[in-house]
């Protein structure tokens, strides 16, 4: 059984008389340790998919498995624990707690789990050794995103979910962030799922899943993922 598996996952939103089918029997899987990129146009159902995978939402139909566990039927409380223990999120807009320093933001996540990573080391790993005591407002976008990544992995999650992680960053910074993901995947063996509309990024992925109108149109293994340095967009 694959590490992550979506089995005919559908998500329907009903607003008034309008029914929106955000996911239509989406079927895919991702193996452990892979760096997967899910691409699709706006409205293809990327975010819905991420929400469901991240335990922020439940599918209307179908099942979602992470490491052999059906996530789609969990209660709110179980979902909270699921998010806490198994998922690390990285968002487009970083979502750092503005009132906490970079280090504290990481520390806060670390406090949540029994066996967190060492925060200082983590900060060093993401290249923010000297910025630990700065508040988010004192950090650049890249630095903020690095902090967010450090925060996400401090909990040793089974899965690192990234939603347009470079969307708010300039080219160079974006690249350095992507590099960080690649190194986390390659060096630490963390399963990373990046959701983006930027298909250029697919080149660095182990697996590329393409979404179209709520369905998975392709799930391709990239036999030769390239280094981020080589990607241009």
């Amino acid at each position: 059984m694959p590490y992550i598996e979506f089995q005919k996952v559908s998500k329907r939103y009903i607003t008034g008389d309008v029914e929106l089918l955000a996911l239509d029997e989406a079927d895919f899987f991702i193996e452990k340790g892979e760096l997967a990129v899910i691409v699709g146009q706006s409205g293809a159902g990327k975010t819905t998919l991420l929400n469901i995978l991240g335990g922020m939402d439940r599918p209307t139909d179908g099942s979602v498995f992470l490491d052999g566990r059906d996530v789609s039927k969990l209660s709110n409380k179980e979902l909270a624990l699921y998010r806490r223990n198994e998922i690390g999120f990285v968002f487009q807009f970083y979502n750092l707690i503005p009132n906490l320093t970079a280090y504290e933001n990481v520390e806060m996540a670390a406090e949540l789990v029994r066996d967190p990573m060492d925060c200082d080391k983590l900060m060093a790993d993401v290249g923010l050794e000297g910025r630990k005591q700065n508040f988010p407002s004192q950090l650049s976008g890249g630095e903020q995103q690095r902090t967010a990544i450090a925060r996400a992995i401090a909990k040793r999650p089974k899965l690192l979910l990234c939603d347009e992680p470079t969307g708010a960053l300039d080219y160079q910074t974006g690249k350095s962030v992507l590099k960080l993901f690649q190194s986390l995947s390659v060096d630490k063996g963390i399963t990373v799922v990046i959701i983006t509309h930027n298909s250029a990024i697919t080149a660095m992925a182990d697996r590329v899943i393409t979404l179209k109108s709520g369905s998975v149109s392709s799930n391709i293994i990239n036999p030769n993922p390239v280094s981020v340095d080589l990607i241009e967009w």
Binding site: G54, M56, N76, K77, A80, L81, Y82, R83, R84, N85, I87, F89, N95, L96, I97, P98, M108, A109, L112, R151, K155
Partner: peptide, 14 residues
Amino acid sequence: IREIATLKVLGFSR
């Protein structure tokens, strides 16, 4: 609200 949402996403219990 974002801060709270973040906390929830991070897995803070209710």
